[in-house]
């Protein structure tokens, strides 16, 4: 029954999927805690705009999307710091703007091509060899950089003014988070689709925060959760013949509900014990 697991396209999907799940889980924790949950969503729309334009000119999609999304990530963080446009409106402006440009570009280039629809809804099962190599390199570098700067990312996320005050270059680490997020979104778009990639960033973090109380345990739980949900999602999407990206998201929703229930029961038990004693 599980023969399909050894097929080449499945193996590719697993390698890229696990790496992307890991990167998005790691970054997701910082983004959710910094109240930047929607940045992933905004950036994926920017990614869509960039891809469509790349399609018009016949350029390789990732080569255009990566720099454009990175610039957008910087802009969003900058706008967040200045108080003239609030963070959520900044994201709305940039994401709907690029969506509009993307739609125009798509219609110019002669409607929805397979390539564009692949990026819109994700198509992890049709990845080429070069897609896999590029995704693997990018995702591994994100993971490596995150691990190396883990302590500083914690400090800056927990209390930016203290970090700045004691001489940590908080601005630099915010930019670092922005670049890593941009890379994650671009790589993840291929797999999850621009419409769904942000859920991969947000869900594992939100789910883990329900139960775990230290930063390290939340990070570890998110990583395990994200990879497991992806694995279960990919296998069940194959068996049920459902779209992979959407199935992974649904598994994440189930995990969130389970964690929510566990934390609810734990809280009730604690209250019960307190009132009893």
């Amino acid at each position: 029954m599980f023969d399909f697991l050894t097929e080449t396209f499945m193996l590719r999907a697993f390698i890229v999927g696990i790496l992307v799940s890991l990167t998005s889980a790691l970054l997701g924790v910082s983004l959710v805690l910094k109240r930047y949950s929607m940045i992933g969503d905004g950036l994926s729309h920017v990614g869509f705009g960039a891809l469509s334009i790349a399609a018009v000119f016949g350029i390789a999609p990732l080569a255009v999307a990566l720099p454009v999304v990175t610039v957008a990530a910087f802009l969003l963080l900058r706008l967040n710091e200045s108080s003239k446009i609030k963070g959520d409106s900044a994201i709305a402006i940039i994401s709907t703007g690029s969506l509009a440009i993307g739609i125009i570009a798509v219609s110019i280039s002669g409607g929805m091509t397979v390539d564009i629809s692949n990026y819109l809804f994700g198509s992890i099962l049709t990845m080429s060899h070069s897609d896999v190599v590029l995704s693997t390199i990018l995702a591994s570098s994100v993971i490596l950089i995150f691990v190396l700067f883990y302590n500083k990312i914690f400090a800056v996320t927990f209390d930016e003014s203290f970090s700045r005050a004691t001489g940590i270059k908080a601005g630099g680490y915010n930019s670092l988070i922005a670049v890593l997020t941009a890379v994650t979104v671009v790589v993840g778009m291929r797999m999850m689709g621009t419409l769904l990639i942000s859920s991969l960033i947000i869900f594992p973090a939100l789910t883990s925060i329900r139960i775990f109380k230290s930063f390290k345990s939340v990070i570890i739980c998110s990583s395990i959760l994200s990879v497991s949900c992806f694995f279960i999602g990919l296998v069940s999407s194959y068996i049920l013949e459902t779209p992979t990206g959407a199935t992974v998201v649904c598994i994440n929703i189930i995990a969130y509900i389970v964690f929510y229930l566990i934390s609810y029961v734990k809280r009730k038990l604690l209250q019960h014990r307190r009132s009893a004693s």
Binding site: L33, I168, K213
Partner: peptide, 30 residues
């Protein structure tokens, strides 16, 4: 990097998952 700072509480998020040890240890980063 030899200044210790105790910010106003409002600067820190209310629902941030962090253990006491993690927070104290982060002070030594500088």
């Amino acid at each position: 990097n030899e200044i210790g700072y105790l910010p106003q509480q409002s600067g820190i998020q209310k629902d941030f998952p962090a253990s006491v040890y993690e927070v104290v240890l982060s002070g030594t980063l500088n």
